[in-house]
Amino acid sequence: MTKLDTPIAAVSQARPRRPRATGRLLLNAALAVLFLGAALTVEVDLTRLLEAPAAIWRILVLMFSAPDWSELERASGLMLESIHIAWIGTIMGAILSLPLAFLAAKNVTSRTGSTVVRQVLNAIRAVPELILAIAFIPIVGLGAFAGTMAIGLHSIGTLGKLASEAIEGIDPGPVEAATSVGAPRMAVMRWGVLPQVLPEIVAFWLYRFEINIRAAAILGIVGAGGIGEGLSQTIIYRRWDRAGVYVIVIVLATVAIDAVSSRIRRRIIGGGDRAIKTEADMVTDGHGQSGPDPAKGPNPRDFG
């Protein structure tokens, strides 16, 4: 305390007391209790937990040390089917979600009307694709058709929500202008609203397509078509050398399609700030669910 020991210039200042951090402490304690409670009660065999790293490593070695490339043709064919499922499913979702998005936008539809439609969209979103597929299989039979329906239906929920938020974010000026010249409601939507949001919405569609590729890759597990079927079979029969081929095909196809699609998306949005903003607006978790953007946190548009 050498230099700072010199007399302090100002009149004696009262040092404030350290504020209590009760809230934070409670929160941490609650999290600890929750985690420990879950960890101690979950039915996990401890010996298995200890063996897990070695077991997983053994399988990874089996999968990728000497893949059975003779399986490549079948794997590629099934991956192509997954891509088809994702493509048609996305188009279905896109077409059906557009009118719903207008109905769910607060600045277009009445307050009650938009709330009802919005909750319907939320409800659709809440059920994972795989479970929708399970529901569709008994109705339309095993195969790619059921998967397409599942992906299409789920996409209606997610795309409808994103698009309605885009519509709520528009500049009201053009709408006012169109209304002031006496345009009918339909024309106001077509010329006042749609041009403002279309690039963004098309970008959402492409983004959804990227996510749907991943979803379509697993539908085969329940028999709804695509590469998941081949993969789960090879794993059930412990043909790890073949399973490795499937994994490689999925990774390569997904990464390649992501690269192309995100490039097109950026072009549509027009690059620059807007592209970045939109990227952040969509939760780019890429795993089948799109939710509100956590990067923004307090997004007033999340729930209306």
């Binding site: 305390m1 700072l4 100002a10 200042q13 040092r15 404030p16 504020p19």
Partner: peptide
């Protein structure tokens, strides 16, 4: 902590410490 508090006192802003 003491050093930090004294430094804040020297620039007369210690009341804002927290």
């Amino acid at each position: 902590l003491e050093y930090a508090m004294r430094a804040l006192e020297r620039v007369e802003i210690v009341e804002k410490a927290y």
